[in-house]
């Protein structure tokens, strides 16, 4: 998997995904990502660690479920089980706009490049794409449309009426 930032840059992923089944003893050093279930189960242990913690939400696990704990997390991963499942767009936006989350929001799972700009506008800051993905297509998808007709989670330059110019 390659990790693509909202500006199209490819970066190395510093995070390790922690298996739900793994015991509390075997938690590796450094930044780890846990499921919501694991967070709820092993919260006491996880909070004692001295390394960044990320949480992974399935598409039906909505922003409100982690709102109270958001300051514990450096990363929220949103899963798109099918690219047609658009719940993550609302979740990202709520995390940013309602709950003021400033850490990384990462989208993973089934996505198509044509959704990249919408994801970014909703507050997603990185996407995990398959190793064989054509990164040029993904980057191009951020630049195809430069005008929006509604405010969203990211900064933009207001034009007249409802319109705004998106800064690539």
């Amino acid at each position: 998997m390659a990790l693509l930032l909202e500006n199209g840059a490819v970066v190395t992923d510093p995070w390790t995904v922690l298996d739900d089944a793994a015991g509390s003893d075997g938690i590796p050093e450094g930044p780890v990502i846990v499921s919501l279930e694991r967070w709820q189960r092993d919260r006491a242990v996880l909070e004692l660690r001295n390394a960044p913690l990320g949480i992974r939400l399935k598409s039906h696990q909505l922003a409100g479920e982690i709102a109270a704990d958001l300051d514990r997390f450096g990363l929220v991963v949103l899963e798109l089980p099918k690219f047609r499942d658009g719940r993550a767009f609302s979740t990202a936006r709520l995390l940013r706009e309602r709950y003021g989350f400033t850490g990384e929001i990462r989208a993973t799972g089934a996505m198509i490049p044509d959704q990249f700009l919408f994801l970014v506008r909703c507050g997603v800051s990185s996407v995990e794409v398959p190793d064989n993905a054509d990164l040029a297509v993904w980057r191009h998808a951020l630049t195809e449309i430069t005008i929006a007709y509604q405010a969203a989670a990211t900064a933009d330059e207001p034009l007249s009426l409802l319109r705004r110019r998106l800064s690539p």
Binding site: G86, F89, S90, Q115, F118, C122, Y149
Partner: peptide
């Protein structure tokens, strides 16, 4: 106004 607001709305383009 609703036409503009709904056009390529980033949050509401993959509704149920």
């Amino acid at each position: 106004i609703m036409r503009q607001w709904s056009t390529l709305n980033p949050e509401f383009s993959y509704l149920p």
